[in-house]
Amino acid sequence: MNDATTAAGPGAPVPSESAAPGRIVLLTTSHRVAPGLLSWPAWRTLRAADRVLCPDPDHPQLPYLREAGIAVEAGGELPSAEELVAYCTGDPGTGAGAGADAGAGAEAAAGGRTVVVVPSGEGEPRLTDGLARLAGSGRLRMPDLELLPASYDLPGARLLDLVQVMDTIRAECPWSSRQTSEGLVKYGIEEAYELVEAIEEGDREALREELGDVLLQVVFHARIAEEDPEEPFSIDDVAGTIVEKLVHRHPHIFGDEAAETPEDVKAHWLRTKAAEKRRESVTEGIPLGQPALALAAKLASRVRTAGLEVSLPSAAGDGDGFGEALLALAVRAEAAGTDPESALRSAARAYRDAVRAAERSD
């Protein structure tokens, strides 16, 4: 798209091939980064520009550009692609100076001018399409056309979009605006199980989608919590709490303690967690509503970690011994390093496949 040169027509002056062609720079910014935090190349280009154009009079960058002494022509319709090319190159064959301020035409005649366009949020398709059309025609000597990102999204920046969308949905959606955390419980459980299934199936696309669904539950509950009249908290409070917990429970990274093995890390974690919770029993904090095998394995893990000697219950409890037998298997699996819940799910999937195979053979 640079330096496309042809004759402008019979009798038309032809610019010198050695003359600077000028530049048209489309300066893009991210709405996820605070206004005014622009890259050094962006500030340097803005300060060196002959004209800075911004069609949006309410663009969030404008106050900061003006504070920095950048003269911005804001509001109104942008000059056409032909007008900007003429202004930058000084080629009278395109109507040099058209759309420019009074007296700018004489300056543009020399060429080598730089125009920076700060687009609105929707972009400037009329201008960019026009420039592409002119560059592709081969009839004009084009200025250098550049896309200059002035700010970049940081990792995790799209989370801000999620929070913003959730705010809008909570305010405007007839269904979402009426939901409570209690009413959303079943969805959280379903999404967690769907995530587990995606992991166990090794489906990467499903994994990405299900992680998003679980994340939505977190953001939804936090948004609802903001409205609590007595103890409100926000998604920032949720994130701040887990950050503090992670830092505190990793003293080998953020503190002075040492940990060379995964076992050392786990020991640190358990010590700091015990000090935080100040629990009187190793069973505290174990949710009884989780699946029975997972519950049994978690209890067994706590018992083993605490070094307790606890006898398994006898079959007198339920009369048939199935519960006690399943508990004993769960304890054995946990001691062997096998998650009994995952093991049973794997066996159940294999059983399902065998059922389907039997059905097809009939």
Results as ranks from 00 to 15, higher is better:
46 L>Q: 08
110 A>N: 01
158 R>M: 10
74 A>L: 09
359 E>T: 13
77 E>Q: 12
185 V>E: 08
45 T>F: 05
124 E>P: 00
211 L>G: 08
269 W>C: 00
40 W>P: 00
222 A>Y: 02
22 G>V: 10
213 D>I: 15
139 R>L: 15
102 A>N: 07
286 I>T: 09
360 R>V: 12
41 P>E: 09
267 A>T: 13
253 I>E: 11
29 T>F: 05
22 G>Y: 02
229 P>D: 09
274 A>F: 03
205 E>D: 13
304 R>A: 15
107 E>I: 11
86 A>V: 09
179 Q>T: 13
236 D>Y: 06
278 R>E: 13
5 T>Q: 04
334 E>A: 11
320 D>T: 14
52 V>Y: 06
224 I>S: 00
86 A>F: 03
46 L>Y: 06
348 A>W: 03
360 R>G: 15
275 A>F: 02
216 L>I: 15
230 E>M: 02
16 S>H: 04
361 S>G: 02
215 L>N: 07
131 L>R: 10
253 I>W: 09
167 D>P: 02
146 E>A: 11
214 V>E: 12
305 T>R: 09
205 E>N: 04
142 M>V: 08
181 S>V: 12
204 R>K: 05
238 V>L: 15
167 D>F: 01
354 A>I: 07
151 S>L: 07
343 A>N: 02
6 T>D: 11
318 D>T: 14
79 P>L: 10
257 E>V: 14
138 G>S: 13
77 E>V: 12
302 R>T: 13
10 P>C: 02
46 L>A: 11
121 G>Q: 06
36 G>W: 06
298 K>Y: 02
216 L>M: 15
314 S>A: 14
117 V>D: 00
147 L>G: 07
158 R>A: 11
81 A>V: 12
193 Y>C: 06
17 E>S: 08
169 I>Y: 00
208 R>K: 07
354 A>E: 14
264 D>W: 00
276 E>Q: 11
25 V>P: 03
5 T>P: 01
335 A>N: 03
165 V>R: 04
4 A>Y: 02
310 V>W: 00
34 A>G: 03
164 Q>C: 02
122 E>Y: 01
